[in-house]
Each structure stands twice: as structure tokens, then as C-alpha cells.
Design a protein around this nucleic acid. Structure first.
Lengths: 341, 341
DNA sequence: CTGAAAGCGCTTACAG
DNA sequence: CTGAAAGCGCTTACAG
């Protein structure tokens, strides 16, 4: 924008009859002493003129901006929308602006955006897109983040996989373990798992927890019990189709995300397979929509908003000492999962 | 962030053995001629050093930033999440960063955020929170936006109510009119409307369209047929309760938003009232979840992502001539609405 | 406590 | 085509 309609500090100073140095101090430092009369004149002038400091000039002078970067997979996915809501609400409280980018789970894209956000001199970076299992990519990210942190930036990751910055660790393993155990306790013995791509650490963790939960009760998942699709509604739909079209369909269909469960239930409904009478279905995440699903979706509820708030809170802390906040999920037993007939 | 780990233009220039003026030109203007040898040296130096221009310095020098502001009601609401997805994807394509703020439908908050975003010198402002019927607020907004546009900023509103900047006009009236008409054609004669607060223009428009659609078929809505709640799931839930608890509950429950319909269906389910057998339910918006609702939700589908994309596209255009893009909804006839028994 | 001045890292007339 | 210099709008040592 071609400025010059906007008032500058100089305008305020002139109107108040002080130097810009004084005006600057009065305006930006509430603890600055100074003559009360001057202070009032400056404040009044600023108010009358509708003065707002140019953040770019300020950022340049102080080498510190008032923006934070938020990296998610996709806003359109409720999981990330909820989380973003938490981040944004805390940022607003702190007078910070959130720049949001979507990676669509593409490592190259993630790296590029992180570089861009760092290039933008954001004060903090909240990385909430799932981490990848990709050594080269992780090394590149690490290098980038380390340099950024070195230069004063704050890094917070949601999900493990980066040994740098603060961490909000969602208990994917424990949550899934508990859910799987609950399914066995319900009486299930045959399982079908609709998983996402193994390159996502969240997928690996949830899968591990699931396996563990079954194993706790002596059930071992075989290779064939798992189908790998996309961590999305469509993935859940096609995964359900694959598993349920087999000669011996499972009695309990566990998906790794609520959206996948929605897709699976949609397929089951279209194909006249009753939930939970013929097959139980579970999700993970605890999206608001899970409650309204029919039947209501059994899942692991993650307090996503709180995760976002916590992440943003940590982003405000100095990088050292490093904080790790564990967030546990809550088992939500609902009608989509019941004892097998 | 306390910089100084970051490379500056000066570093690049030094390494390439040119002045910073030349380095600046080579780096920022692809059409700049210059000796090919120099150009290569500069580009190589920048690449080796991992140079990224400080956007604040650049913004200060050019008075133009690379950020756009996006104002929505609440990211957690799918309607706005979908729309934001469209805005963000176009912004990414244009190498722009999106700063998102949530107003939670509070006019004071909206004005404050708009000021803040303008203060941030964003290059464009996409206003996608619903507009209010509040003369004082609108005047203040108008003044703010006019000055902003005057100074070179770009303004795009989604929904009418602001006679400034480009406009993406969602056809709330026509959409609701069509849906209401379809309900009458289905055979419905008694209606209950769960509306949102009248201070929202979108609510007024949808209500007007709804009334019109019924009137087209000779049905007049009475005052008592409408209940005003919140434009949310909870609002829909309580609205359904109010209307269905009457001596003569309506045969068709029309809500002004999909989320409200979800809430309404939840209440109906809890209370053993069958949809659509005992009462038909409709929404507005066309959220992805509407398809998975049970029964699937009859609604007006708004191409929300495209609305977001269009808005961001318009934000890239010069303010004059003023563009107005009409976006129509599509009637989605689904099982939640059927002929009354 | 207050002000003049330097500096933050760029861009862009203005000379050469 | 290239470079020296001014300027964008702030903040902050440094003097007084």
C-alpha cells in the first residue's frame, strides 16, 4: 500500500510539540516516566490522529516482530481448525497476529513455508502439521529451526519428531492403546484397521498404541488386518470398503482419525451394513462432529483447542528451559462401538 | 527475534563483489538487465548464503507488504474454515501470507482487528465475518476502510452491507427462497424457523428469502413461527426444543445454517422425534458434514472454498473498477426433508 | 527527563 | 549498467 495517508510518529510528535524520541518513549513504554503534561499531550495527539506505529519500522528497529507463524496440514480439516482456534485465541490475547499456512502434508511444502515464515521474521513458529518420517527432510527442518531459534525465534511443535523447541505432545500411543483395549473388553476379537500413510509419525504412533492395546489382551494384529490409505474421509471410506469386502470382514473397524471414521460409516451406511450391530467403528481425535454422528462415534477425545492454546503459550516462553507438555486423550465410549453380536 | 544470524543484502553484495544497489536490483527485479556475469554472481551468493530479504525493511522502503488480513467469525466453525481454505490457497499461490483473526461476531472486536490489520500494513483485507446491522459500527468501519483503500489497501467483503471495496455476494436470499419453495412443493404447510440474531445481515437475508419462498406458494410465516437463537449448533438445538415443544409443532423445521440443523437434529434424536418422518429439517451452507448427517441434510450448498478463492482473487485487483461477484447456492435435496406424513 | 543522531535493512531516484 | 546516497518510520544508546 502506498502509505502517506497514515500518520507517522513524527506527526504525533509535531502536534504534541515534542521530539519523536520522546513521543516514541511515551507511546511505547508505559513505565517511562517523563513529565505528566508532556505524556498527556502525546497520548492525546496520538489518539486524535489515530496513530498506529508502523510495525515494519518497529520490527526493523527492534528486530522483533509481532507476528507468529502457524503451520498446519489443512484448515479445512476440523482437527486443525480446532487447534488453530486455540492458537489464535491466545495470540489475540497477547496482541499477536497469526499467519497461517497449510502444508497438505507435503514435506517440501512444509520446509518452504517454514523458511518463508522465518524470512518474515515471525517471532514464533507453531508447527502443528504432523511430522514426517523422512530423514533428509527432518535434517533440513532441524537446521532451519536451529538457526531460527539461535537468532531469537521461538519454536513449538505439536507432536514429537523434532528435538528442538518446546513440545506439546499429544498422547497418540496411550490414547489408541486405551481405545483398542476397550474394544477387546467389549468382546471384539477380529479387527480391521484403516491407517494413514506410515510416513506420518502420528500414524505410526497411533498404530503402535493400537497394537499394544490389543496385545495387552493377547490379540496380535496381523499384516493383513491393516489397510493403509489417506488420513481423510475418503481414505476412511475406501479403507472400509477394502476391509469389509473381504471374505471374513472384521467385527471392529478401527480408524486412525475421526474423519476416516466418518468416511467409513458413510460407506457402511451406503452398503447396508449396520453400525454397531454388524461392525463397530472407532475414530481418533474427538472432533465436535463425532458427537453428532449416527451412531455417535466412539473415539479418543483430544482437547484440540487446549492443545492450540498450550502451544501458543509455550511459544511465548524463552527457548530454554525446554518445555514438554503431555496432553492425554479421553476415551469416549459411544454407540458406534458395542459388543459384537 | 534478535536477528544478526540472518544474512543481509549487504552480505550478499559483499560476497558477489557488487554494491547493494545492484544486488537489490538483481534479486528483486527479474527483468533488470545488468551484466549476466554479475547477475549470476549475485544469485549464486544469495543462494549460498540462504538470503531472504527482510520483509520489514522491504515494506518500509516500498510501503507495501506481502501480508493480507483475513477476518472471520471463528475458524472452528466449518463454514469459515472452508472459506479460509480457499483464501489461503490463493494467497499461497501468490506468495502472500494470511493473517487470520476471529471476531466471534462482536462488532467492537471486528473494528479493533480491522484497525490492527490496517496498522500492520497488510496489503489487502478480506472481510468474511458476517456484516452487522449497526449504523454506528458500520460508519466507523466504512471510514476506516475508506482511508485504508485511499492509502492503497485492497478491501474485499464477503456479504453485502459495505459500500466499499470488492464484493463476493453469497446469494443468501435466493438460496433460501429456493429451499423454502422446495419444502412447500414437498407438501409442507406448517413451518418452524430457527433463526440467528437479526443484527447479522446474513440472518436477515436468509430470513427474507425464506419468507419469500413460502410466499411464492401462498404461505405466510407468522411471528410465532420464528425463534431467534444463536447461529450455532447450540442455537439450533435450543431452537428446535422451543419449537417442537409447542402444542402444534411444525412439520418442517428450517434453520439458517447447517450447524444449527446439526444441533436441531441432535435434539430431535435425543427426544425420539424421527427425521424426516415426524419433522423435516433443513440447513444452509453446505458443510461437508451435511452429507454424512443421518439422515443427510437437505440444505443450500454454497461453494465456500470457491468463495474464499474468489475473495482472495479480487483482493489482488485494483480497487477500481469495483467488482461484485455473485455466488449462487445449489439446492441439495436430501433425506432430512421429505413429504410430511 | 529530553533531544539530536545513528542505525535497523531494504529500495530507488539521481548521477556518472 | 552501476554505485553513492537519501529515505522509509521507528527505537535507543549517547549527550546534555
Amino acid at each position: 500500500m502506498a502509505d502517506r495517508t497514515l500518520v507517522r510518529l513524527q506527526d504525533v510528535a509535531a502536534r504534541a510539540g515534542v521530539s519523536i524520541a520522546t513521543a516514541s518513549r511515551m507511546l511505547s513504554d508505559p513505565d517511562y516516566g517523563g513529565r505528566a503534561a508532556l505524556r498527556e499531550r502525546v497520548l492525546a495527539a496520538a489518539a486524535e490522529l489515530g496513530y498506529r506505529a508502523n510495525p515494519h519500522a518497529r520490527a526493523l528497529a527492534t528486530s522483533s516482530s509481532t507476528n507468529v507463524g502457524l503451520v498446519v496440514h489443512d484448515v479445512r480439516d476440523s482437527y486443525f481448525a480446532m487447534l488453530s482456534g486455540g492458537v489464535i485465541s491466545v495470540a489475540e490475547r497477547e496482541d499477536l497476529l497469526v499467519s497461517m499456512v497449510c502444508t497438505y502434508r507435503d514435506p517440501a511444502r512444509e520446509l518452504e513455508y517454514v523458511k518463508r515464515l522465518i524470512g518474515q521474521r515471525v517471532r514464533a513458529l507453531v508447527l502443528a502439521g504432523s511430522a514426517f518420517r523422512d530423514t533428509a527432510h527432518n535434517a533440513a527442518m532441524r537446521a532451519e529451526l536451529a538457526a531460527y531459534q539461535e537468532s531469537g525465534g521461538s519454536v513449538v511443535s505439536v507432536t514429537r519428531g523434532r528435538d528442538i523447541g518446546h513440545l506439546v505432545q499429544i498422547d497418540n500411543i496411550g490414547g489408541m492403546r486405551g481405545l483398542a483395549g476397550a474394544m477387546v473388553e467389549l468382546g471384539h476379537t477380529s479387527f480391521g484397521v484403516v491407517a494413514g500413510p506410515l510416513r506420518l509419525l502420528a500414524v505410526r504412533d497411533r498404530l503402535q498404541g493400537l497394537r499394544q492395546g490389543l496385545k495387552d489382551h493377547g490379540i496380535v494384529l496381523s499384516r493383513d488386518d491393516i489397510v493403509y490409505t489417506d488420513l481423510s474421509r475418503e481414505g476412511g471410506l475406501s479403507g472400509a470398503q477394502t476391509l469389509m469386502s473381504r471374505p471374513n470382514p472384521p467385527g471392529c473397524l478401527m480408524t486412525l482419525a475421526d474423519v476416516m471414521a466418518f468416511g467409513a460409516m458413510s460407506w457402511l451406511r451406503s452398503n447396508g451394513i449396520a453400525v454397531p450391530d454388524e461392525v463397530s467403528v472407532t475414530g481418533f481425535g474427538g472432533l465436535p462432529a463425532a458427537v453428532d454422528a449416527v451412531p455417535p462415534l466412539a473415539t479418543v477425545e483430544i482437547p484440540l483447542e487446549r492443545v492450540g492454546e498450550t502451544a501458543m503459550d509455550l511459544a511465548l516462553r524463552p527457548p530454554s528451559p525446554r518445555h514438554v507438555v503431555e496432553v492425554e486423550g479421553t476415551l469416549a465410549r459411544r454407540a458406534s462401538a458395542a459388543a459384537p453380536r
